[in-house]
């Protein structure tokens, strides 16, 4: 097996172009498990550890966009990006253990593209873009278009993920995950909700409840309508319980879950509804109405 160790981004792209079969290696928290158990024997590994460009976090970008390098570990996201990227930081905090968070990265999560990847619901809710590049040039892929199937994504053979572009939050965001205990669990299901007051819209992301991470679009549209018609963005009062229940129900119907060892399809639908209702309550309780109207109705 060849072990390629590019020293910088240009070399990494050249190596990937020359050897499209080379498997990128970042924190190794997915890939090394496969190597250890002989589930995979790639002819070449492309180690990204020395590529400094992938470890950068640029928060001074245009329009308050955070450009998060592909290999920035979860630990740093938790420690440094809580305020601009609240949902992603919450999701990052639920990943594995301190040891896993010290090495695992969002680039690796996207590379694996598991429906259970915890970054994905948060990125969907925030409306992130994935920056993919090759020697041919680079492109920004809306997160909605990134996942193509279970453990499949739109990357071409010669492409690498450089960074993820996420707008700094302008409203409250939440992420919640159901699992059997607090540490070290693959999500039974996960839900993320972001309020975007500047466009008066909400966005959602659901994990582990469909072949790919998905948005609950019907639930978003319904809630957008309720918030708008009820003047909620102005007065800040919470939506009526009946509307919250309907939002939760629509979120559950966005799922196409399976029965597996971690949970049944029915349980997943139920749990997504519960998480949708809770995250709505949490985000809306943190929403400061612009007119200073009482939000504690």
């Amino acid at each position: 097996m060849d072990f390629l160790r590019p020293a910088d981004w240009r070399e990494a792209l050249a190596a990937k172009a020359a050897h499209p079969d080379a498997v990128p290696l970042a924190g190794g928290t997915d890939l090394m498990v496969e190597l250890n158990f002989d589930l995979r024997r790639p002819a070449r590994l492309l180690d990204l550890s020395r590529v400094g460009e992938l470890a950068d976090v640029d928060t001074a970008g245009e329009g308050d966009t955070v450009v998060l390098g592909a290999r920035v570990p979860y630990r740093d996201i938790v420690e440094r990006l809580r305020s601009p990227l609240p949902a992603l930081a919450l999701a990052a905090h639920t990943v594995g253990s301190p040891q896993i968070r010290a090495r695992g990265s969002v680039g690796g999560n996207l590379g694996t593209a598991s429906p259970a990847g915890d970054a994905h619901p948060a990125l969907l809710a925030a409306g992130a873009r994935v920056e993919a590049a090759s020697v041919r040039g680079s492109r920004l892929i809306p997160i909605d278009d990134f996942f193509t199937g279970p453990k499949r994504n739109v990357l071409a053979d010669d492409e690498l993920i450089r960074a993820v572009h996420v707008d700094a939050a302008r409203g409250p965001q939440q992420f919640a995950k159901v699992g059997t205990r607090n540490a070290m669990v693959i999500a039974v299901c996960a839900f993320s909700l972001a309020l975007h007051p500047h466009t008066r819209t909400v966005r959602t992301g659901i994990g582990s409840a469909a072949p790919t991470p998905v948005r609950a679009r019907a639930a978003e549209e319904f809630l957008d309508g309720v918030l708008d018609e009820g003047g909620h963005w102005d007065h800040g009062r919470p939506v009526p319980p009946s509307a919250a229940a309907r939002f939760a129900q629509l979120a559950a119907s966005a799922c196409a879950p399976i029965d597996d060892v971690r949970g049944s399809a029915d349980y997943r639908r139920h749990a997504v509804a519960v998480l949708a209702r809770r995250t709505l309550h949490w985000t809306w309780s943190a929403y400061p109405a612009p007119q200073g109207a009482a939000s504690c109705a």
Partner: peptide
């Protein structure tokens, strides 16, 4: 960094 050495490739 605190890491699981079983998940670090020797080459890394």
């Amino acid at each position: 960094d605190l890491v699981c050495s079983c998940l670090v490739a020797a080459g890394q």
